[in-house]
Design a protein around this nucleic acid. Sequence first.
DNA 1: TTGACATTTTCCGATAAAGGAAAATAATGA
DNA 2: TCATTATTTTCCTTTATCGGAAAATGTCAA
Lengths: 125, 125
Amino acid sequence: MARASTTSDVFNAIAEPRRREILELLAQRGALAAGALALLLGMPQPSVSKHLGVLRKVGVVAVVKQGRERVYSLEAEKLRTVHDWVKTFESLWGHQLERIKARAEEKARVRVAAEASSKPGKGES
Amino acid sequence: MARASTTSDVFNAIAEPRRREILELLAQRGALAAGALALLLGMPQPSVSKHLGVLRKVGVVAVVKQGRERVYSLEAEKLRTVHDWVKTFESLWGHQLERIKARAEEKARVRVAAEASSKPGKGES
DNA sequence: TTGACATTTTCCGATAAAGGAAAATAATGA
DNA sequence: TCATTATTTTCCTTTATCGGAAAATGTCAA
């Protein structure tokens, strides 16, 4: 089996740096036509179009036909999946002091797990 | 050119659902040996091992040889890249009321952008 | 209708991921 | 040393991406 399709998932869709750039642009500059995006990104239009196709298929951008151009806009809610997922780990890195604490706890946990999975009752009181 | 390597990026690494599951397990149950992970995930060890290889190459997990097992632990800080990135879009979906507001604003922006890119001065007063 | 513009689609070549199976390492215990 | 256990690595096949170039749609304006 091959790698999962880029369109199968928001996670897969945003794995591409260029696609992330597109999303960033749409976020900060509002809706943009495909051509404008190509211009801002400095890459060939067909390429941008394909990336937009992926993003659209996943639903993270929406299109509106306006004459001969197609205006793309961000559907930010779709990124929520990703956000919610990483947010789970937020506490594990923490800031400043918390970080040191978490570090220590984790180190201890590693030791515990390591010992627990060896035969118990070995020599390490 | 092919798709970017899964090991080229944290984004690419976490695109795989199983790899995300591994990270989740490590987060909630602390450090675990490869075999334990395979058991918990209900999939063949070689498969898990390969996934762990990817995660390790990217630096989001760390290994510690403990006898014949290898205990894996989470290096959560590496997920910060992803977190910081999606966090940028946080304001765009907001909660409750904000969401409606944002929606309206966005809709307006799309219209504006669409109009701006057509020839100005058309008939739509 | 003809022509220019905006964008998508198709075709191509190169690259590599993912799963399964089997082989290769490594470390423990008798 | 010889099995046994824990994990990783190597093959192999299938499938899909990405990028570039060219062809195909679609739309507006004379």
